[in-house]
Design a protein around this nucleic acid. Sequence first.
DNA 1: TTGAAAGCGCTACCAA
DNA 2: TTGGTAGCGCTTTCAA
Lengths: 342, 342
Amino acid sequence: MSTMKEIARLAGVSRGTVDRVINNRGSVNTETERNIREIIESLNYSPNVAGKNLAVRKKKLKFGFIIFDVLHENSYFADVISGIECRAAELSEFGVTVEIRESDVNEPDKQVESISELVDLGINGLVITPINHPMIADKIRELTKSGIPVVTSNSDIPDCGRIAYVGSNYYKNGETAAGLMNLITAGVANIGIISGSPQVLCNSERIAGFSDCSKIHYPELNIIEIKINNDNDDESYTATYDMLTKYPEINALYLTAAGVRGACQAVSELGLAGKLKIISYDATNPICQLLDDGIVTVTIAQQPKLQGTLPLDILLNYLSLGTSPENEFNYTEIEIKIKESL
Amino acid sequence: MSTMKEIARLAGVSRGTVDRVINNRGSVNTETERNIREIIESLNYSPNVAGKNLAVRKKKLKFGFIIFDVLHENSYFADVISGIECRAAELSEFGVTVEIRESDVNEPDKQVESISELVDLGINGLVITPINHPMIADKIRELTKSGIPVVTSNSDIPDCGRIAYVGSNYYKNGETAAGLMNLITAGVANIGIISGSPQVLCNSERIAGFSDCSKIHYPELNIIEIKINNDNDDESYTATYDMLTKYPEINALYLTAAGVRGACQAVSELGLAGKLKIISYDATNPICQLLDDGIVTVTIAQQPKLQGTLPLDILLNYLSLGTSPENEFNYTEIEIKIKESL
DNA sequence: TTGAAAGCGCTACCAA
DNA sequence: TTGGTAGCGCTTTCAA
């Protein structure tokens, strides 16, 4: 409603002085400042977004975005990237540019290097899917101290100074899988779990949520074995094949990571397609295909595009409007998908 | 990248003239116009959103939003309203005001009156949850002709001139329910359907989708009876009670409309809570409670808030940026929710 | 410490 | 049919 101009008039000062107060730029007489702040209070002033947006252009903000490597177009992170690129195009109208970097899940030192490189490029803010390693936490702390806000996306490191996390609540992901498993098996099942590296937060949390929830609410969901596939279709195939051969009583699979196609190939070759209940994560192209073919029973997605767009919005609001994100944890929706709802 | 100023310089004319060309305001020499358009082409010009946003304020745009009446705070439309109010507050920064009106599903003449009233108030655009009646279609056509763009939300009337629809794909909603019913009953069930008025599109479509999909893919899902509850908890209770007493073989309920609490009360009183599989729509407070209590098995939601916000965004883009919506049909996500994923 | 003025991109209005 | 100018709300720079 009210504007800086109006405040300036009421306070009998110039807009420049009001600007200095509002944005804490200093060099304002204490008395003058107090008076201005009072007026701001009484008018319930909040800056106009359109005006801010127009003026922020000259700052030429530059954001960095580091995610795990996109191995192929069907990779989960390809969807995140498409979100990033979409929002980056829109933000270019506000003078914002976005630098994207990929890094390997298993090479924290390289990720630190990528961060440094982006800092040298002069970024004003960073979004990162951090490797869960002290080196990264320290580096993020360093950026934060030097005035570069950091948002984590898809994976999180708490207590490292980052201003917000955008991504899934993986534990709840696991509970949801348990709830679904109960529904689709009438509460009784022998379950095999194929997972990625337990070092990666999302796998351990999804398994913990699943297993805790089962124990408490669905006691007849029996976990027979857990195998690791390193997010890789080949290893996934082998692990699944071996598991199903070894334990023919398994009648449901819980796949917590990538490599769904590999696992399903083993299932098909063993003649179990459509007989085994299979719960997976994400809704990449191959998974949608498997759902459609009736091999995967249900999949749980996590708004990959939002994981690309929202962190950038948070950074821009922080740097342009000066508003801290409303929530530290911005959990994406748990999207249950079946064949018919795709 | 490029600006009007730059185009004006290159064309050797004033910004006013460029503005007239870009926004088709007329009064420009054909030759001059042709030249300017060429330059626009070659520069690949597109107007700056921040600039537009700032300038649109002086238009003092006023939007109308007509939805069905909110009978109580737990009504589905209360969620839509909260979306409207949220976006209205944000749009006020762009000089936009939003007038909300409620109308009764069964009184098309009153809805026409509401529209006229809003037009008299001087609205520049309208969002409406239209009653499916020729009177309304005609009225929307009239508005469109007079230059007031209309967006339908939650329910649609095709071929009436409205520029876009935002809402669920109800037929697909029904197919999804059939898919879920198959999963949670191992494909064999005797189903009772409790529905709102078949006059209301969402009910008929949800039933059609469910029934078509069952017939083709899940032949052992038997629909035993369909009863009408007029979206009302009391009638819903009676209808459900009668149905379950008359057909004790029913072991699953498909609730396509409001009145879920009434239906579930009948189920509970008959001692069937947790034994009957129940699929409902939306995720209002009472339904979330029923999910949590294990009475409703699964519910299918449809992004109510988005149905409030997106139509307003579409109108603003249309009137400020001059961009028609990318898609005529903006389907909301089909959100499958179980106890654990709430 | 403060004020004045120019400028971001676009629109609107008045005068020519 | 056209140009010029002022203004939207905010930032920035320069001068006082």
